[in-house]
């Protein structure tokens, strides 16, 4: 699933030190559950993103374990506390070993 996986993240460019901000993330992924069968009746193997993390300058915001019941094109919304200027790193871990990552820099002001 390495091709066509694209993260989409809403995070503010600026925040006040200590401010709590709402983050939204979307990523394109079929999240094949392993429960479906193809046209010939053979099971389609599971292929999902199984973990999502958000860290800010090495400190964890949220770490999500994901099961096949998460919808196609996974979406998360959560809140982060911004201690100061820094980089927010978003990482998705695929069953096939691929890791997708994107970074948003947040300034103080």
């Amino acid at each position: 699933m390495a091709s066509g996986v694209k993260p989409r993240v809403k995070a503010p460019k600026k925040a006040a030190a200590g401010e709590i901000v709402t983050i939204k993330t979307l990523i394109s992924h079929k999240m094949e559950s392993g429960q479906r069968k193809d046209g010939d009746g053979n099971p389609i193997p599971r292929s999902i993103i199984n973990r999502f993390t958000c860290d800010f300058d090495g400190m964890n915001v949220i770490d999500v374990e994901m099961a096949p019941a998460i919808s196609t094109n996974p979406y998360f919304q959560f809140d982060a506390m911004i201690p100061g200027a820094g980089d927010m790193v978003f990482t998705w871990y695929d069953d096939d070993g691929d890791v997708y990552s994107t970074t948003k820099s947040i300034a103080i002001g």
Binding site: R8, K10, K24, L26, S28, N73, Y75
Partner: peptide, 9 residues
């Protein structure tokens, strides 16, 4: 919201 709308991917 364009960050809720999966079509925006």
């Amino acid at each position: 919201d364009d960050f809720d709308n999966p079509g925006m991917i």
